[in-house]
Simulated scan of single mutants.
Amino acid sequence: MKPLILFASLLVFQASFSQVVEDKKAAKQLIEDFYEAFHKQDEKTLKTFAHPKIKMHSVSIDARGSTSLSSETFSNFLDYLVAIPASTKFNEKLHNFEITLNGMIATVSAAYSFYINDQLSHCGVNTFQLIKSRAGNWKIIYFVDTRSKLGCE
């Protein structure tokens, strides 16, 4: 009887572990897809990744190390993005994903370097809060980033 209980416990553990791995992959894929659409300035696709009540903040660090917090609506973010002229090349490179799951929410963080016309503009960390829908899809509910010219390599 004990071997049967042990075997059943191992199966449940394996199924739980597999779900965590799949959820982490799906959360990371959402962010990668978000940035693919971001670089294409694809407003319609970006909207599909965000919850209708998404919140956005940025923490800026100036040359003296002083910080400021700003808020932006997702709509204004999209308006700004699509207004970038085709002649301006921009690229946000993500580094070192960290993903934490807690039931129906996930936190995805990644350091980034932002380039304009192939020149490093600034760097920082992006942190996304995600919620899992009933259908099993992740949606972005909160996005906060840091922006600094200090310590960028």
Rank of each mutant, 00 (worst) to 15 (best):
M1V: 09
P3Y: 09
P3I: 05
P3V: 05
L4Y: 09
I5L: 14
I5T: 15
L6S: 09
L6Q: 13
S9V: 10
L10F: 12
L10D: 09
F13A: 13
F13K: 07
F17E: 15
S18T: 12
S18W: 12
Q19T: 10
V21S: 14
E22T: 10
E22A: 13
K25R: 15
A26F: 08
A26S: 14
A26W: 07
A27T: 09
K28D: 07
Q29I: 08
L30K: 03
L30C: 04
Y35T: 02
Y35S: 07
Y35R: 11
E36H: 11
E36V: 04
E36T: 11
E36G: 11
F38D: 09
F38S: 05
K40R: 15
Q41K: 15
Q41T: 03
Q41W: 04
D42C: 05
E43A: 11
E43F: 01
K44M: 07
K44H: 07
K44E: 14
L46V: 04
L46H: 01
K47D: 11
T48M: 06
T48C: 02
F49C: 06
H51W: 12
H51N: 15
H51F: 11
K53C: 02
I54E: 08
S58W: 09
S58T: 12
S58L: 10
V59M: 08
S60L: 13
S60M: 12
A63L: 15
G65N: 12
S66P: 00
S68W: 06
S68I: 02
S68F: 03
S68D: 13
T73S: 14
T73Q: 09
S75P: 03
S75I: 00
N76C: 01
N76H: 13
N76W: 06
F77V: 02
D79R: 15
L81F: 04
A83W: 00
A83Y: 00
P85Y: 07
P85K: 10
P85I: 06
K89P: 01
F90T: 03
F90W: 06
E92S: 08
E92P: 00
K93Q: 15
L94D: 07
L94C: 06
L94R: 12
N96L: 04
N96F: 02
E98V: 05
E98C: 01
I99K: 04
I99D: 05
I99M: 06
G103W: 08
G103R: 10
M104G: 14
A106M: 08
T107G: 06
V108D: 03
A110P: 01
A110E: 00
A111F: 10
A111P: 13
Y112E: 05
Y112G: 00
Y112N: 02
Y115W: 08
D118H: 15
D118I: 04
L120G: 02
S121F: 05
S121Q: 11
S121R: 06
H122L: 09
C123Y: 01
G124S: 12
V125H: 00
V125C: 03
T127I: 09
T127P: 05
T127M: 10
F128M: 04
Q129L: 11
Q129T: 14
I131A: 08
K132M: 04
S133G: 11
S133T: 15
A135C: 02
G136D: 10
N137M: 09
W138G: 02
I141T: 13
F143Q: 08
D145W: 07
D145Y: 06
T146F: 01
T146L: 03
R147S: 08
S148Y: 01
S148F: 00
K149P: 00
K149T: 15
L150N: 14
G151C: 05
